[in-house]
Design a protein around this nucleic acid. Sequence first.
RNA 1: UCCUGAGUAGCUCAGCGGUAGAGCGGGUGGCUGUUAACCACUAGGUCGUAGGUUCGAACCCUACCUCAGGAGCCA
Length: 459
Amino acid sequence: MHCLGLMLETVSQILASESPRASITVRGWVRTKRDSKSCSFLELTDGSCFKGLQAVVDAGLPCAELLPRILTGASVQVVGALIASPAQGQKWELQVTDVKIFGEADASYPLQKKGHTPEFLRTIAHLRPRTNWFGSVFRVRSKMAFAVHRFFQERGFFHVHTPIITSSDCEGAGEMFRVTTQKLNVAAKPEEDFFGRPTYLTVSGQLQGEAFACALGNIYTFGPTFRAENSNTARHAAEFWMIEPEMAFSDLSADMTLAEENVRYLVQAMMMECPDELEFFNKFVDKALITRLQQTLDKPFERISYTEAVELLLKSGRAFEHPVVWGEGLQTEHERFLAEEHVQGPVTIFNYPKAIKPFYMRQNDDERTVAAMDLLVPGIGEIVGGSQREERLDRLTAAMNAQGLDEETYRWYVDLRRYGSVPHAGYGMGFERLLMFVTGVSNIRDVVAFARTPGHAPY
RNA sequence: UCCUGAGUAGCUCAGCGGUAGAGCGGGUGGCUGUUAACCACUAGGUCGUAGGUUCGAACCCUACCUCAGGAGCCA
């Protein structure tokens, strides 16, 4: 029936045509059909770009008999001539000579030509990429993932594949998912389990990343991470992707600079490489999106020390729900004030109190703070968290003891300080949070293909 | 996990003690080089689940489930 051996031009390529074409073939899905007396208009999309191709089927053609079976959602092949469209609304259209149906879609197809809420579309995550909205999100996601690699590769960073299954938690960055082959309801005997010890899905590739930075110089990881936290917010998922560079012979200042450049590079990539999607998001998702992204590029990012930030918050005269106290973590409302009102743009907070940060962060000379940094962006909050790592053996082991960590588990990590230790620094950037920032999408579930959240993994 | 709000037709919602409603979407007919077309007709519902109050519950009460917004935790 259909010859599928040929790689056809995509709708994206066809719409970029310079001149009319005698005969082309297009395969895709019908987004809408509009019938007229003399002809029918099919809006075809193959997923390759935001815009669809209008195919015009003359009512007199033999293949027009198929039209009653071609409803919204049907998959078809159309052959015809690409001509300049005589009507407003599109540059090109296809004057159809032949139509074939791959698969019909009946009236129960949920994506009828009508606006749908993101909440409803979440319940049909297997079909939602066929919508304008989610098609755009996932094209952007792909472009951004490639841009992440480009950013680091252009700077000579090596991509390291750190393990997904691990036996070391990253200082309890979050609750972990246990990985086991043991049957339920037997007494847990980790020494008899598959790996002979308790293992988990990784919460971060940082510790292993440090090992490779202390060998290859500058490295990055970019892969899935898992948190079993019972977090029910629009900004948390149980499975998410994290970008984690680690630089040898580097300090907090260089770390902050890299993070800032990284965010700007990806914002720039969004604006240069996804113009149709950007315009769509700006119109239907977040009307301030383009303005905000442009400001991100125009203005240097600000940096404020934690201590300064606390002073700013205290001086603001704001009645915060949570009191501002030096030594406590910054609450969401505090971070929002700093990024959205004080700076009105991305801002990096650095040198946090030692007591609220994990053991591996480098102690500052003041003995009260560590060389940690969080990059906050308006609307989302923390998008990057990083630090200079403690490279001094005695300081590191002291911090581990103070936080009650098992030396044996971290022996290999401590070895990095025992043999040829170097100052080094790195950070973690939440890929989904970055996507939320560049698309204006306000719920993390809507930038993940099949989102995993507490009580929810239906695919 | 906590606080608040919401679950009624395929979708978005109205109805808030007395016979189940609208718009969109679907079907049929009409009109039209159409752009989320338009006009007429039509089909479509255990009112989230389980109890309770009442002569009578979509509506009031209780529990649970799901979703959303906010908080905590974080990326």
